[in-house]
Computed example of a mutant assay.
Amino acid sequence: MPLPPEVHRTTSAFLSAIDASAPGLVEGLYLCGSLGFGEFVPARSDIDFVSVSAERPDRAALTALATAHETVRREYPRPFFDGFHAVRADLAGPPEHCPDLPCTRMGAFEEAGRFGVNPVTWHELVRHGVTVRGPVLTESEVYVDDAALRAFSHGNLSAYWSHLLGELVESPAEAGEPDAVEWCVLGVSRLHHLLATGSLTSKSGAGRYALTAFDSRWHPIVLEALRVRGSTREPSAYDGNPERRAADVIAFTAMVIESGLALGARRG
């Protein structure tokens, strides 16, 4: 499938910039995230990448990477071009053994970080990755461990999402904001899907899964999250009642966290 125009222009701009200042540095460029599932929503999606080099970047190469990313951020500030720069040996082992890497988050470059360095990225690369440059990655080159992926997802529910739920309970108005509706409802559903089926899915795929996996009482808030995700102009079932939308986001998030943690424990 051809890349969406926004993705093509951003990846082309990055590769042109880095090739001009550091020829041969980026041997492979791969996209993961929603693109790997055939899903890209220009107003909502980011461009998640992993680049591969033969050797660790030296000072000159780090400067070249910073300059190339600044060029992309200046010319095409959105969607964000976010990810990390690895060597092949990094991908061949568990993510937790990987050192800090040059990376970008929300378009901002840092020389050493861990954004995206986790089992989800490793699995997406080899099972759903989109190759822009270089050979297609295989499971002989990228470390995948389904048990580790499940454990990471279970831990994400018990740590990040449980903490976020507590914040929403204390500030319920924030739960009704469109971004929070999409992030929470589809985010926890995505993790539940992994724990229940053993496979990854996109955010919209997680919403479709939630419509079949959970009681129909939750359908309005799931459909609302999909409406926000799709950036459609369809009327909201919650128009005029933001308090009910916020309450449903909080209740749904709590329900899925509890269900996912129990599911993870049973299958762990």
Rank of each mutant, 00 (worst) to 15 (best):
77 P>I: 13
232 T>N: 10
123 H>V: 05
70 E>M: 06
236 S>K: 10
41 V>R: 14
5 P>G: 04
220 P>Q: 11
189 S>Y: 00
230 G>C: 02
11 T>N: 13
103 C>T: 03
217 R>E: 13
169 V>M: 06
70 E>H: 07
87 V>P: 01
1 M>Q: 05
243 E>G: 03
154 H>M: 07
104 T>L: 08
106 M>N: 15
37 F>R: 00
38 G>A: 09
62 L>A: 05
191 L>Y: 02
217 R>T: 13
105 R>Q: 08
129 G>P: 10
171 S>Q: 09
218 W>D: 08
196 A>K: 01
250 I>C: 11
68 A>S: 12
86 A>F: 15
195 L>A: 04
257 I>V: 12
162 S>I: 03
223 L>W: 08
157 L>R: 03
204 S>W: 00
184 C>E: 05
92 A>P: 04
208 R>A: 06
228 V>M: 04
37 F>V: 07
91 L>T: 01
52 V>F: 08
62 L>F: 02
152 F>V: 08
233 R>N: 10
98 C>T: 14
129 G>L: 00
143 Y>S: 13
6 E>A: 15
127 R>L: 08
110 E>I: 10
77 P>R: 10
16 S>R: 15
26 V>W: 12
207 G>L: 00
152 F>A: 13
177 E>N: 07
22 A>V: 04
189 S>L: 00
50 V>I: 15
18 I>H: 07
264 G>H: 06
217 R>Y: 02
191 L>S: 05
196 A>H: 04
234 E>Q: 08
89 A>I: 03
93 G>M: 01
142 V>M: 04
160 Y>D: 12
191 L>M: 15
160 Y>E: 10
149 L>V: 13
268 G>M: 05
184 C>T: 11
27 E>P: 03
176 G>T: 04
43 A>K: 02
224 E>I: 00
216 S>M: 01
135 P>Q: 10
8 H>F: 07
146 D>Q: 09
72 V>E: 01
161 W>N: 00
244 R>N: 11
163 H>A: 13
10 T>I: 15
54 A>D: 14
263 L>S: 11
68 A>R: 07
39 E>C: 12
181 V>I: 06
5 P>A: 11
14 F>D: 12
206 A>G: 08
186 L>T: 00
268 G>Y: 00
123 H>M: 05
258 E>L: 05
204 S>N: 04
229 R>I: 09
135 P>L: 06
61 A>K: 09
260 G>A: 09
214 F>D: 06
41 V>F: 12
149 L>D: 01
28 G>D: 04
21 S>V: 11
201 T>V: 05
11 T>C: 15
112 A>K: 13
43 A>T: 14
31 L>S: 09
37 F>H: 07
72 V>C: 10
107 G>N: 06
234 E>F: 08
222 V>R: 02
61 A>L: 09
9 R>C: 02
119 P>Y: 12
130 V>L: 04
39 E>V: 15
257 I>K: 02
8 H>I: 02
122 W>D: 02
266 R>C: 10
232 T>A: 12
54 A>W: 03
142 V>N: 05
19 D>N: 14
75 E>Q: 14
173 A>W: 05
192 H>S: 07
118 N>C: 14
84 F>S: 11
